[in-house]
Every structure is written in C-alpha cells, then in structure tokens.
Design a protein around this nucleic acid. Structure first.
Lengths: 126, 126
DNA sequence: CAGCATCCTTCAAGATACTG
DNA sequence: CAGTATCTTGAAGGATGCTG
C-alpha cells in the first residue's frame, strides 16, 4: 500500500504492503536514527558514537551498526592501526534518508506542544 | 537534538533529545502508521479497520487506537445505535502528519531495490 | 459490534564479563 | 579500541473466551 496513491484496495498488510512500514523496519528501533543523524554530520568512530549516544550499550551499538551496514545505509571501515580504529560513515543511500527524517523532525518540533496538550486533556478526562 | 540544526553539541539522548525519536515513539510501532494512513483516506469504523489491516488482533487494534487518540492524532466517536458503532477519524493534527509520512513513503519506494541489493551483497560476503 | 480480561510467547534491549 | 559471549528482563504482541 502507498500513502500517496489512494486508488488502491482497502486492505493493508504490514511490512509487505506498506512502504512506510519498511522504513520503520530499517530505522524504527531505539537507536538507528540517532546513529544516522550523527553520521549525517560527520564520520564517527565506534568509541565516538558510544560516547555521543547517551545510554547505549556496546552490544546495542554493535548490533545496530551491523544492521545499518547490512541495509546499505552506512559503511564500516576498519583501520589496521594500534590501537585499532573503525570508522562509520553514511553511504550515499544513507544520506538520501536525511531529507525525509528532517521532515519528521520539523513535524515533531512544530507539534510537540499540541501533542502534550492532547495527552493532558485525555489523561484528565479519565 | 535536531536533525536540521548542526550547531549542537555532540551528545544525544534518545526520546528526550531527538525530535525524530519522539515521532517514532508515537507511530513507530507495528500498526500505528497503517491506521493513520487508512484514516487519511476516510473515516473508518472499528470493524472496517479490523478487516482492512491484515493480521491485526482485536486487542492490538484497540490498544493502538487508544494510544493514537491519547496523542491527539485521531478521534473516537461512539454512536448510540443498535448494534453499536464507533467511528475513527484523523484530527487536524493527525492530518499534518501525512505529509512527512508521504516523504518516507516516497523514499522507501525509490530506494527499495537499492536496499535489497545491499542486503544481498552483505549476506553474500559473509 | 466493539470491545475487555487473561494468559502466554517472543524478542528487543540491558547488564556484565571477557578478548584479539 | 572495538568488539564477543552469556544471561536476564520487560514490554510488545498474539490467542482465546467473555460481555454490554
């Protein structure tokens, strides 16, 4: 199913059939967008990401980076130095994702208060 | 942290500090975007959504609708008829989300093959 | 019809300790 | 430094039966 095309049958299957959900399967988890955004600014090494992202464990950083690399959004380049050093960088594909993410970012900043208000109203009423 | 503003310190906290992650906390789950997209076309009643969204359980449909209503993205209007009937509809706020979602949708459709290719390459290499 | 109440399973994610 | 290897837990989600 497409968000854009409205000339479609009623039914929706998650993942198979909804393009937006495919994106969420790529970067909808807890850490991926944070990494993509940081790498959107500049190349980072592993330890830099680890320090920059508050609260992430070494394990989750490794797993998330591996998944992003598999999907072609980032590259991993190890340097044979001592001590070892591994750089992570957005691919061209990864960079194209920054635009849509910016749209979401703008939306969130614009409507943040509206959402909080709705929540307060709802929680009050019940 | 903002995706747009690059004049910011290094560190990122998830949820608190990243606007994109806030959106993902609203609609990043398995079913929310599907519902938002369907309601973007027209008002639906509960049973219509249940039939339209392949694989969703009554329980998850109820929970997801409730969360979306709490965040002010949709409205719930029960009709005192027999048999009972409840309509769900996007709010103005909910409608403003369709734009950013469309951006993601377009991105996914454009780069779907690229991602599949990257994945094949990666899985081959290992 | 539109749900709620329970029980159950699975998996994302965290904690901790170890290593090339 | 940049990871693995285990173990554990919490929350998301599913299955089923009941009800105003």
């Amino acid at each position: 199913m497409s968000v854009t095309n409205t000339n479609v049958p009623e039914a929706i299957k998650p993942t198979d059939d909804c393009a937006v959900r495919e994106v969420l399967d790529l970067v909808g988890d807890k850490w991926s967008v944070l990494i993509v955004v940081l790498l959107g600014r500049r190349t980072h090494r592993f330890s830099e990401l680890h320090r920059a992202i508050e609260g992430i464990s070494q394990r989750m950083l490794t797993l998330t980076l591996r998944a992003l690399a598999r999907d072609g959004l980032i590259t991993r380049t190890p340097h044979a130095t001592v001590p070892p050093r591994v750089d992570y960088e957005l691919t061209d594909l990864g960079r194209t994702l920054l635009g849509p993410l910016r749209a979401l970012d703008t939306w969130a900043n614009t409507h943040r208060e509206e959402i909080r208000a709705a929540r307060r109203r709802h929680d009050q009423a019940s």
